[in-house]
Amino acid sequence: MTTLLSQLADIEPLPPVADSTQLVDLLSRVAAESLVDLPEVVLIHEAIAPVPALELIREIALRFPAVGAVLVTADTSPGLYAQAMDSGARGLITFPLNYEELSARVQAAAQWASGVRRHLGSGEEYAGVAGTVVTVAGAKGGVGATVTAVQLALAAQASGRATALVDMDFQTGDIASYLDVQFRRSIADLAGVKGDISPRILQDATFSHPTGLALLLAPVEGERGEAVTDRATRQIVSALRSRYEVVVVDVGSQLNAANAAAVEMAGIAVLVTTPDVVSVRGAKRMVRMWGRLRVRKAEEVLTVVNRHNRATEIQPPLIQRAVGTHMARTTVPAAFKELQGVLDAGRMYELEAKSTIKQALWALAGELGLAGPAKPASGGGKRAKR
Protein backbone atom coordinates (compact mmCIF):
# COMPACT_ATOMS: atom_id res chain seq x y z
CA MET A 1 0.00 0.00 0.00
CA THR A 2 2.82 2.40 0.88
CA THR A 3 4.37 1.73 -2.53
CA LEU A 4 1.11 2.43 -4.33
CA LEU A 5 0.48 5.58 -2.31
CA SER A 6 3.92 6.92 -3.17
CA GLN A 7 2.95 6.71 -6.85
CA LEU A 8 -0.14 8.91 -6.45
CA ALA A 9 0.13 12.53 -7.52
CA ASP A 10 0.24 15.19 -4.75
CA ILE A 11 0.31 12.54 -2.03
CA GLU A 12 2.85 12.53 0.80
CA PRO A 13 2.43 9.18 2.59
CA LEU A 14 3.51 9.10 6.22
CA PRO A 15 5.14 6.01 7.76
CA PRO A 16 2.54 3.40 8.82
CA VAL A 17 1.67 2.96 12.49
CA ALA A 18 1.33 -0.41 14.18
CA ASP A 19 -1.96 -0.11 16.06
CA SER A 20 -4.96 2.07 16.88
CA THR A 21 -3.38 3.54 20.01
CA GLN A 22 -0.36 4.79 18.08
CA LEU A 23 -2.60 6.30 15.42
CA VAL A 24 -4.73 8.29 17.87
CA ASP A 25 -1.63 9.38 19.80
CA LEU A 26 -0.02 10.57 16.56
CA LEU A 27 -3.09 12.56 15.51
CA SER A 28 -3.34 14.08 19.00
CA ARG A 29 0.32 15.13 19.03
CA VAL A 30 0.11 16.68 15.58
CA ALA A 31 -3.13 18.50 16.42
CA ALA A 32 -1.57 19.91 19.60
CA GLU A 33 1.43 21.24 17.69
CA SER A 34 -0.06 22.46 14.41
CA LEU A 35 -3.54 21.77 13.06
CA VAL A 36 -2.50 22.35 9.46
CA ASP A 37 -0.16 19.35 9.69
CA LEU A 38 -2.95 16.91 10.47
CA PRO A 39 -3.18 14.22 7.76
CA GLU A 40 -6.10 14.77 5.43
CA VAL A 41 -6.67 11.02 5.04
CA VAL A 42 -6.00 7.97 7.20
CA LEU A 43 -6.30 4.43 5.81
CA ILE A 44 -7.43 1.92 8.44
CA HIS A 45 -6.95 -1.82 7.96
CA GLU A 46 -9.92 -3.94 9.01
CA ALA A 47 -7.73 -6.01 11.38
CA ILE A 48 -6.31 -3.07 13.34
CA ALA A 49 -6.20 -3.52 17.11
CA PRO A 50 -6.70 -3.10 20.00
CA VAL A 51 -9.61 -0.76 19.17
CA PRO A 52 -11.69 -2.36 16.36
CA ALA A 53 -11.61 -0.60 13.01
CA LEU A 54 -15.17 0.76 13.01
CA GLU A 55 -14.86 2.06 16.58
CA LEU A 56 -11.56 3.69 15.67
CA ILE A 57 -13.16 5.39 12.68
CA ARG A 58 -15.95 6.66 14.93
CA GLU A 59 -13.39 8.07 17.38
CA ILE A 60 -11.47 9.82 14.60
CA ALA A 61 -14.70 11.30 13.26
CA LEU A 62 -15.54 12.62 16.74
CA ARG A 63 -12.13 14.04 17.64
CA PHE A 64 -10.75 15.01 14.23
CA PRO A 65 -13.79 15.73 12.03
CA ALA A 66 -11.73 17.12 9.14
CA VAL A 67 -9.62 13.96 8.80
CA GLY A 68 -11.08 11.52 6.27
CA ALA A 69 -10.94 7.91 7.46
CA VAL A 70 -11.04 5.19 4.79
CA LEU A 71 -11.53 1.51 5.68
CA VAL A 72 -9.35 -1.09 3.93
CA THR A 73 -11.16 -4.43 3.91
CA ALA A 74 -11.74 -7.70 2.12
CA ASP A 75 -15.46 -7.59 2.98
CA THR A 76 -17.47 -6.14 0.11
CA SER A 77 -20.91 -6.74 1.61
CA PRO A 78 -23.50 -3.93 1.67
CA GLY A 79 -23.86 -4.46 5.43
CA LEU A 80 -20.26 -3.55 6.15
CA TYR A 81 -20.44 -0.58 3.81
CA ALA A 82 -23.46 0.75 5.71
CA GLN A 83 -21.76 0.20 9.08
CA ALA A 84 -18.61 1.97 7.89
CA MET A 85 -20.58 4.96 6.64
CA ASP A 86 -22.54 5.12 9.89
CA SER A 87 -19.23 5.19 11.78
CA GLY A 88 -18.04 8.18 9.75
CA ALA A 89 -15.83 6.54 7.09
CA ARG A 90 -15.29 8.49 3.87
CA GLY A 91 -15.01 5.37 1.76
CA LEU A 92 -13.85 1.75 1.48
CA ILE A 93 -10.86 0.24 -0.31
CA THR A 94 -11.11 -3.49 -1.00
CA PHE A 95 -8.53 -6.23 -1.36
CA PRO A 96 -6.76 -7.06 -3.60
CA LEU A 97 -5.36 -3.54 -3.77
CA ASN A 98 -5.91 -1.73 -7.03
CA TYR A 99 -4.10 1.46 -8.09
CA GLU A 100 -7.16 3.08 -9.66
CA GLU A 101 -9.45 2.33 -6.73
CA LEU A 102 -6.86 3.46 -4.19
CA SER A 103 -6.28 6.69 -6.08
CA ALA A 104 -9.99 7.42 -6.43
CA ARG A 105 -10.81 6.78 -2.76
CA VAL A 106 -7.85 8.70 -1.37
CA GLN A 107 -8.40 11.67 -3.67
CA ALA A 108 -12.12 11.76 -2.84
CA ALA A 109 -11.44 11.68 0.93
CA ALA A 110 -8.72 14.33 0.57
CA GLN A 111 -11.02 16.64 -1.39
CA TRP A 112 -13.70 16.20 1.24
CA ALA A 113 -11.21 16.98 4.05
CA SER A 114 -9.93 20.05 2.21
CA GLY A 115 -13.49 21.30 1.77
CA VAL A 116 -14.24 20.86 5.46
CA ARG A 117 -11.07 22.75 6.39
CA ARG A 118 -11.90 25.62 4.05
CA HIS A 119 -15.36 25.80 5.58
CA LEU A 120 -13.91 25.88 9.08
CA GLY A 121 -11.32 28.50 8.26
CA SER A 122 -8.22 28.14 10.39
CA GLY A 123 -9.38 24.80 11.73
CA GLU A 124 -9.22 25.79 15.40
CA GLU A 125 -12.86 24.79 15.81
CA TYR A 126 -12.56 21.19 14.69
CA ALA A 127 -9.62 19.92 16.66
CA GLY A 128 -11.42 19.59 19.97
CA VAL A 129 -9.56 19.74 23.24
CA ALA A 130 -7.82 16.37 22.73
CA GLY A 131 -7.39 16.21 26.47
CA THR A 132 -5.03 14.07 28.49
CA VAL A 133 -6.60 10.94 29.96
CA VAL A 134 -5.09 9.68 33.24
CA THR A 135 -6.24 6.42 34.79
CA VAL A 136 -5.52 5.69 38.45
CA ALA A 137 -5.63 2.05 39.57
CA GLY A 138 -4.97 0.51 42.96
CA ALA A 139 -2.72 -2.51 43.47
CA LYS A 140 -5.47 -3.67 45.81
CA GLY A 141 -8.33 -2.08 47.70
CA GLY A 142 -7.41 0.52 50.31
CA VAL A 143 -4.03 1.67 48.97
CA GLY A 144 -5.24 5.23 48.28
CA ALA A 145 -6.08 5.22 44.57
CA THR A 146 -9.23 7.31 45.00
CA VAL A 147 -7.50 9.93 47.16
CA THR A 148 -4.79 10.09 44.49
CA ALA A 149 -7.31 10.48 41.65
CA VAL A 150 -9.26 13.19 43.47
CA GLN A 151 -6.18 15.24 44.34
CA LEU A 152 -4.71 14.94 40.84
CA ALA A 153 -8.00 16.24 39.41
CA LEU A 154 -8.16 19.08 41.94
CA ALA A 155 -4.57 20.08 41.13
CA ALA A 156 -5.27 20.11 37.40
CA GLN A 157 -8.44 22.16 37.86
CA ALA A 158 -6.66 24.62 40.17
CA SER A 159 -3.99 25.19 37.53
CA GLY A 160 -6.63 26.41 35.08
CA ARG A 161 -7.27 23.25 33.09
CA ALA A 162 -10.85 22.18 32.47
CA THR A 163 -10.95 18.84 34.28
CA ALA A 164 -13.32 15.89 34.52
CA LEU A 165 -13.10 13.26 37.27
CA VAL A 166 -14.65 9.88 36.47
CA ASP A 167 -15.47 7.06 38.89
CA MET A 168 -15.21 3.68 37.16
CA ASP A 169 -14.86 1.70 40.37
CA PHE A 170 -18.43 0.55 39.91
CA GLN A 171 -18.83 -1.65 42.99
CA THR A 172 -16.92 0.35 45.61
CA GLY A 173 -16.46 3.83 44.12
CA ASP A 174 -16.20 6.56 46.75
CA ILE A 175 -15.62 9.77 44.80
CA ALA A 176 -19.15 11.02 45.52
CA SER A 177 -18.60 10.42 49.25
CA TYR A 178 -15.18 12.06 49.23
CA LEU A 179 -16.58 15.20 47.57
CA ASP A 180 -19.93 15.42 49.44
CA VAL A 181 -22.08 14.93 46.34
CA GLN A 182 -25.71 13.88 46.04
CA PHE A 183 -26.47 12.87 42.47
CA ARG A 184 -29.01 11.18 40.22
CA ARG A 185 -27.21 10.65 36.91
CA SER A 186 -24.18 8.41 36.51
CA ILE A 187 -21.86 6.90 33.95
CA ALA A 188 -24.40 4.08 33.52
CA ASP A 189 -26.81 6.58 31.94
CA LEU A 190 -24.31 7.20 29.14
CA ALA A 191 -23.83 3.49 28.48
CA GLY A 192 -27.28 3.27 26.89
CA VAL A 193 -26.75 6.17 24.48
CA LYS A 194 -27.02 5.01 20.90
CA GLY A 195 -24.71 6.77 18.49
CA ASP A 196 -22.47 9.67 19.39
CA ILE A 197 -22.46 11.26 22.85
CA SER A 198 -23.19 14.92 22.23
CA PRO A 199 -21.90 17.71 24.52
CA ARG A 200 -25.48 18.21 25.77
CA ILE A 201 -25.91 14.54 26.70
CA LEU A 202 -22.50 14.55 28.40
CA GLN A 203 -23.34 17.69 30.36
CA ASP A 204 -26.63 16.20 31.53
CA ALA A 205 -24.82 13.15 32.93
CA THR A 206 -22.05 15.03 34.75
CA PHE A 207 -22.21 16.85 38.08
CA SER A 208 -20.70 20.33 38.29
CA HIS A 209 -18.83 20.48 41.58
CA PRO A 210 -18.17 23.80 43.38
CA THR A 211 -14.43 23.26 42.82
CA GLY A 212 -15.03 23.45 39.07
CA LEU A 213 -14.57 19.74 38.50
CA ALA A 214 -16.99 17.92 36.23
CA LEU A 215 -17.85 14.64 37.94
CA LEU A 216 -19.02 11.53 36.12
CA LEU A 217 -19.86 9.16 38.95
CA ALA A 218 -20.34 5.46 39.47
CA PRO A 219 -24.00 4.41 39.81
CA VAL A 220 -25.45 4.14 43.31
CA GLU A 221 -26.64 0.65 42.43
CA GLY A 222 -23.31 -1.04 41.74
CA GLU A 223 -24.84 -3.71 39.53
CA ARG A 224 -25.77 -1.02 36.99
CA GLY A 225 -22.08 -0.71 36.23
CA GLU A 226 -22.38 -3.94 34.24
CA ALA A 227 -24.12 -1.89 31.53
CA VAL A 228 -20.87 0.01 30.90
CA THR A 229 -19.16 -2.14 28.28
CA ASP A 230 -15.73 -1.66 26.76
CA ARG A 231 -17.35 -0.11 23.69
CA ALA A 232 -19.39 2.29 25.84
CA THR A 233 -16.22 3.20 27.75
CA ARG A 234 -14.40 4.11 24.54
CA GLN A 235 -17.28 6.34 23.47
CA ILE A 236 -17.53 7.98 26.89
CA VAL A 237 -13.80 8.58 27.29
CA SER A 238 -13.55 9.92 23.72
CA ALA A 239 -16.41 12.33 24.39
CA LEU A 240 -14.81 13.50 27.65
CA ARG A 241 -11.36 14.15 26.24
CA SER A 242 -12.84 16.11 23.34
CA ARG A 243 -14.40 18.48 25.91
CA TYR A 244 -11.92 18.59 28.82
CA GLU A 245 -8.20 19.26 28.93
CA VAL A 246 -7.66 16.66 31.66
CA VAL A 247 -9.75 13.53 32.32
CA VAL A 248 -8.84 11.60 35.50
CA VAL A 249 -10.41 8.15 35.77
CA ASP A 250 -10.45 6.13 38.99
CA VAL A 251 -10.56 2.52 37.75
CA GLY A 252 -10.34 0.86 41.17
CA SER A 253 -8.43 -2.33 41.84
CA GLN A 254 -10.55 -4.89 39.94
CA LEU A 255 -10.14 -5.50 36.22
CA ASN A 256 -13.17 -5.66 33.94
CA ALA A 257 -13.77 -4.95 30.27
CA ALA A 258 -14.84 -1.35 30.89
CA ASN A 259 -11.93 -0.15 33.01
CA ALA A 260 -9.48 -2.17 30.88
CA ALA A 261 -10.63 -0.10 27.89
CA ALA A 262 -10.05 3.08 29.89
CA VAL A 263 -6.51 2.01 30.85
CA GLU A 264 -5.84 1.09 27.23
CA MET A 265 -6.96 4.53 26.00
CA ALA A 266 -5.15 6.53 28.69
CA GLY A 267 -2.23 8.76 27.91
CA ILE A 268 -0.96 8.14 31.45
CA ALA A 269 -1.67 5.01 33.52
CA VAL A 270 -0.91 5.39 37.23
CA LEU A 271 -0.77 2.38 39.55
CA VAL A 272 -0.85 3.12 43.28
CA THR A 273 0.71 0.78 45.80
CA THR A 274 1.78 0.91 49.42
CA PRO A 275 5.21 -0.34 50.56
CA ASP A 276 4.13 -3.72 51.89
CA VAL A 277 4.42 -7.22 50.50
CA VAL A 278 0.71 -7.79 49.84
CA SER A 279 0.28 -4.53 47.91
CA VAL A 280 3.46 -4.95 45.89
CA ARG A 281 2.38 -8.46 44.91
CA GLY A 282 -0.99 -7.04 43.91
CA ALA A 283 0.73 -4.40 41.77
CA LYS A 284 2.84 -7.07 40.10
CA ARG A 285 -0.27 -9.17 39.36
CA MET A 286 -2.08 -6.17 37.91
CA VAL A 287 0.79 -5.19 35.61
CA ARG A 288 1.25 -8.77 34.40
CA MET A 289 -2.48 -9.13 33.76
CA TRP A 290 -2.54 -5.88 31.76
CA GLY A 291 0.34 -7.24 29.72
CA ARG A 292 -1.21 -10.67 29.09
CA LEU A 293 -4.47 -9.10 27.98
CA ARG A 294 -2.65 -6.52 25.83
CA VAL A 295 -4.21 -3.71 27.81
CA ARG A 296 -0.92 -2.00 28.58
CA LYS A 297 2.78 -2.82 28.65
CA ALA A 298 4.70 -2.59 31.92
CA GLU A 299 6.95 0.16 30.56
CA GLU A 300 3.84 2.26 29.87
CA VAL A 301 2.76 2.23 33.53
CA LEU A 302 3.87 4.62 36.27
CA THR A 303 3.81 3.25 39.81
CA VAL A 304 3.31 5.63 42.73
CA VAL A 305 4.21 4.66 46.29
CA ASN A 306 1.67 5.84 48.86
CA ARG A 307 2.24 5.87 52.65
CA HIS A 308 5.96 5.95 52.06
CA ASN A 309 8.21 5.83 55.09
CA ARG A 310 12.00 5.91 54.84
CA ALA A 311 12.22 3.53 57.77
CA THR A 312 10.39 0.69 56.02
CA GLU A 313 12.31 -2.16 54.45
CA ILE A 314 10.43 -1.96 51.12
CA GLN A 315 11.58 1.14 49.25
CA PRO A 316 10.77 2.37 45.69
CA PRO A 317 13.84 0.77 43.99
CA LEU A 318 12.83 -2.63 45.36
CA ILE A 319 9.23 -2.07 44.23
CA GLN A 320 10.43 -1.11 40.76
CA ARG A 321 12.43 -4.33 40.43
CA ALA A 322 9.44 -6.38 41.58
CA VAL A 323 6.77 -4.70 39.47
CA GLY A 324 8.81 -3.82 36.38
CA THR A 325 7.28 -0.40 35.70
CA HIS A 326 8.58 3.13 35.79
CA MET A 327 8.41 4.72 39.26
CA ALA A 328 7.19 8.21 40.00
CA ARG A 329 9.85 10.49 41.45
CA THR A 330 7.21 11.71 43.90
CA THR A 331 6.27 9.51 46.85
CA VAL A 332 3.30 10.18 49.13
CA PRO A 333 4.08 10.17 52.86
CA ALA A 334 2.38 8.07 55.52
CA ALA A 335 0.38 10.82 57.21
CA PHE A 336 -3.17 9.48 57.45
CA LYS A 337 -4.08 11.80 60.35
CA GLU A 338 -3.98 14.70 57.89
CA LEU A 339 -6.79 13.05 55.93
CA GLN A 340 -9.00 11.90 58.78
CA GLY A 341 -11.04 15.08 59.19
CA VAL A 342 -11.76 15.75 55.51
CA LEU A 343 -12.52 12.08 54.87
CA ASP A 344 -15.02 11.91 57.72
CA ALA A 345 -16.64 15.14 56.52
CA GLY A 346 -16.65 14.03 52.89
CA ARG A 347 -14.83 17.22 51.89
CA MET A 348 -11.55 16.07 50.41
CA TYR A 349 -11.28 19.37 48.53
CA GLU A 350 -10.80 21.17 51.87
CA LEU A 351 -7.54 19.38 52.65
CA GLU A 352 -5.18 22.08 53.91
CA ALA A 353 -2.45 23.39 51.68
CA LYS A 354 0.15 22.62 54.36
CA SER A 355 -0.80 18.94 54.33
CA THR A 356 2.22 16.87 53.30
CA ILE A 357 -0.12 14.46 51.47
CA LYS A 358 -1.65 17.27 49.42
CA GLN A 359 1.76 18.75 48.69
CA ALA A 360 3.02 15.38 47.48
CA LEU A 361 -0.01 14.61 45.29
CA TRP A 362 -0.01 18.07 43.75
CA ALA A 363 3.72 17.64 43.09
CA LEU A 364 2.83 14.35 41.40
CA ALA A 365 0.30 16.24 39.25
CA GLY A 366 3.12 18.56 38.20
CA GLU A 367 5.36 15.56 37.45
CA LEU A 368 2.63 14.16 35.19
CA GLY A 369 2.17 17.49 33.41
CA LEU A 370 -1.35 18.00 34.76
CA ALA A 371 -0.58 21.10 36.82
CA GLY A 372 1.62 24.12 36.31
CA PRO A 373 1.81 26.38 33.26
CA ALA A 374 -0.11 25.10 30.26
CA LYS A 375 1.84 24.61 27.06
CA PRO A 376 1.07 27.32 24.49
CA ALA A 377 -0.49 26.14 21.26
CA SER A 378 1.90 26.39 18.35
CA GLY A 379 0.81 27.81 15.04
CA GLY A 380 1.98 27.63 11.45
CA GLY A 381 3.71 24.63 10.00
CA LYS A 382 3.94 22.68 6.78
CA ARG A 383 1.14 21.79 4.42
CA ALA A 384 -1.07 19.00 5.71
CA LYS A 385 0.02 15.54 4.61
CA ARG A 386 -2.34 12.87 3.38
Rank of each mutant, 00 (worst) to 15 (best):
V251Q: 03
P210N: 05
G252Q: 01
L255M: 03
I201E: 11
F207V: 14
R241Q: 13
A205V: 11
R185P: 07
S198W: 04
R243C: 12
S208V: 09
V278T: 14
A239R: 06
V251Y: 03
D204G: 14
V263P: 04
K194Q: 13
A261F: 03
S186E: 09
P210T: 07
R234Y: 13
S242L: 09
V246E: 04
A258R: 02
G222N: 00
T273Q: 05
A269T: 14
L240A: 03
A232Q: 06
E221K: 12
V228M: 11
T211R: 03
R241A: 06
G252I: 01
V251C: 00
L255C: 01
V270H: 07
V228K: 07
T206W: 09
R200H: 12
A214F: 06
L217H: 00
Q254F: 00
K194E: 12
P210S: 06
A191H: 14
A188G: 11
V247F: 03
V237E: 00
R200D: 14
V246G: 04
A262K: 02
A269R: 05
G252C: 01
E264M: 15
T229K: 10
L271V: 10
V237M: 09
Q254R: 06
V193A: 07
G212K: 06
A232K: 04
S198R: 08
K194H: 10
V263S: 06
R234G: 11
G225E: 00
V246D: 02
G192L: 13
H209A: 07
G222M: 01
T211Y: 02
N259Q: 02
H209W: 09
T274S: 15
T206K: 08
P199D: 12
E264W: 12
A261E: 02
V280E: 03
S253Q: 03
T233W: 00
V248H: 08
E245D: 13
E245Q: 15
S279F: 15
Q235S: 11
A232H: 07
P275E: 01
L217P: 00
P199K: 10
V193M: 05
R234T: 12
A269L: 08
I187A: 08
D196H: 09
G192A: 15
A214N: 11
S253F: 03
D250V: 02
Y244P: 09
T229P: 12
I201D: 04
V280Y: 01
A262R: 03
